[in-house]
C-alpha cells in the first residue's frame, strides 16, 4: 500500500519535474497574482499589509486549482487512466499517491508565495511553528479535496469551468481557517491560531478518508 502510494506520487512528480509546467507557468502565475492584488489595492494605502494573510491564501487556492487540473489533464490524455486502472493498484492508494504529489507541489507553491509576500508586501513573517503547521495541513486538505473533485471532473469536456465551481465552495473552510491562523501568526499571537490549525487538520483527515473511500467508483468514469 505505502509502496504503491509512493510509486504513484513519484510518477506524478517526475512528470511535473520533466514537463516543467509548474516551474515555467504556475510559479510565475503565482507571482503575477500577487502583483495584480497590489495593483487593485494600492500598496501605499496600507490595505495590502492588513489583507496579506487573506490574499496569500487566495493566491494559494488559485494556483492550487491549476496544479490540480494539471494532475488530471496528464491522466486523461492518451487514456492513461485506463492504464492506471489496469495497473492493479488499489483506488485508495492511487488517491493517496496523487494527493501526496499535489500536496508536495502546493508546499513548493506556498513557500514561493511566502517569499513573495515577504518581498512584495513587506510582510514580517513570524510565529514559524504555526505558520509551517498551517501551510502543511492546509496543503494536504486542499490536495485531498482537490484530488477527489479533480477526478470527478476529469472525464468531462467542461472540466476547466466546472472544477472551480465545485471545488472552491468546498475549500471555503480551508480559506477561513488558514487565513485566521496566518493572521494570528503574523500578529504575534499564535495562541489564537492553533485552534484553526486543528480545524485544518480535521478537514484534511475528513477529505483523505472520503477520497480514499470514494475514488474507486469515480475512477471508472474518468
Amino acid at each position: 500500500m505505502f509502496r504503491d502510494v509512493a510509486l504513484v506520487a513519484g510518477k506524478d512528480l517526475r512528470i511535473e519535474w520533466r514537463s516543467r509546467v509548474g516551474i515555467n507557468q504556475i510559479g510565475p502565475f503565482a507571482v503575477l497574482v500577487l502583483v495584480l492584488f497590489a495593483f487593485a489595492l494600492d500598496p501605499d494605502r496600507g490595505v495590502l499589509a492588513k489583507a496579506t494573510p487573506g490574499l496569500y491564501w487566495i493566491a494559494v487556492l488559485l494556483c492550487g486549482l491549476l496544479a490540480i487540473q494539471r494532475a488530471f489533464a496528464v491522466e486523461v490524455a492518451d487514456g492513461a487512466t485506463d492504464a492506471l486502472r489496469l495497473s492493479g493498484i488499489e483506488p485508495a492508494a492511487l488517491f493517496l499517491g496523487k494527493t501526496l504529489a499535489v500536496a508536495a507541489q502546493l508546499l513548493v507553491l506556498a513557500a514561493l508565495l511566502l517569499v513573495g509576500v515577504a518581498v512584495l508586501y513587506s510582510a514580517t513573517l513570524g510565529g514559524w511553528p504555526l505558520l509551517m503547521a498551517t501551510v502543511v495541513s492546509a496543503s494536504v486538505g486542499i490536495a485531498g479535496a482537490g484530488t477527489l473533485y479533480g477526478v470527478l471532473a476529469a472525464g468531462l469536456r467542461v472540466r476547466e469551468t466546472l472544477l472551480p465551481l465545485l471545488l472552491l465552495p468546498v475549500l471555503a473552510p480551508v480559506l477561513i481557517g488558514a487565513t485566521r491562523a496566518f493572521e494570528a501568526a503574523l500578529a504575534g499571537t499564535p495562541a489564537d491560531g492553533w485552534p484553526w490549525f486543528g480545524w485544518l487538520a480535521v478537514f484534511a483527515v475528513i477529505y483523505l478518508v472520503a477520497g480514499a473511500a470514494l475514488f474507486g467508483p469515480l475512477l471508472e468514469e474518468a
Partner: peptide, 12 residues
Amino acid sequence: VRARQAAVLGLL
C-alpha cells in the same frame, strides 16, 4: 456515469 458522479457530490 453521471449518476455515480452526482452521487459522490450529493453524498458530500
